[in-house]
């Protein structure tokens, strides 16, 4: 088991009222599993992803990630967990605009003080995603598909145990989406990484081994996908 979500709720409180975005969510993700969390806009998917990855704090319940209870960790401890165990892919790519493609990919390893191996590993990954000739380009010199491929390379650079992807093809055209999806699943397989994808794209979801459906902050179904 790599991820365990126990009775997790997220409530936003304002002066007059409180809004429950997630309501007593429970599930477990095993090592090597690929999971899609699907649902309509506002169903709580992204909030759930933020909580699982330790980017946010739940109002109630516990989250266990790679053997760490996120609830009793400080912000700095959670940062360290993210750096060692987690990889991210975002809908908006989220590359650092002031870093070249190569530097963006090197960054997670550098943060682990593994600067020496960062360069070769980043180059290898960029070659793998087909950007061997664009390493010194800045994000704004790359197309959307290329940026997301850099993002994929970065996500795998620290050999994470679990990868969280938030609508990874949401900003891409169909043709590019196909390339990125293929790279995502191939790399995942090669690195034997657990994959949690948040998406409303059912076609993408069907490519995972399990689909969790959210509606109004609750899990309405949790099914295995037949390959």
């Amino acid at each position: 088991m790599i991820l365990e979500v126990n009775d997790v709720s997220k409530v936003y409180k304002s002066v007059n009222r409180s809004l429950t975005v997630l309501d007593e969510v429970n599930f477990v993700v095993e090592k090597g599993e690929t999971v899609a969390i699907v649902g309509a806009s506002g169903s709580g998917k992204t909030t759930l992803l933020g909580l699982c990855a330790g980017l946010d704090v739940s109002s109630f319940g516990n989250i266990n990630l790679a053997g760490h209870n996120l609830n009793n960790k400080t912000e700095n401890e959670k940062a360290s967990i993210r750096n060692k165990h987690i990889g991210f892919i975002f809908q908006n790519f989220q590359l650092l605009p002031t870093l070249t493609a190569l530097e963006n990919v090197m960054l997670p390893l550098e943060l682990q003080d593994r600067a020496k191996e960062a360069g070769p590993k980043a180059k290898e990954l960029l070659e793998r995603v087909g950007l061997g000739d664009r390493m010194d380009h800045y994000p704004n010199q790359l197309s959307g598909g290329e940026q997301q491929r850099v993002s994929l390379a970065r996500a795998f650079s620290n050999t994470p145990e679990i990868l969280f992807a938030d609508e990874p093809t949401g900003n891409l055209d169909d043709e590019t989406s196909v390339v990125v999806e293929k790279l995502l699943f191939d790399l995942n397989k090669e690195h034997n990484t657990t994959l949690v994808i948040v998406t409303h794209d059912m076609e993408l979801a069907q490519k995972t081994s399990r689909i969790i459906r959210l509606k109004g902050g609750k899990i309405i179904s949790d099914e295995k996908v037949n390959a």
Partner: peptide, 15 residues
Amino acid sequence: VKSIAIFRCLGMNGN
């Protein structure tokens, strides 16, 4: 802010 959030997301602590 965007860059800082990415740094944080990739495991850099606040300090």
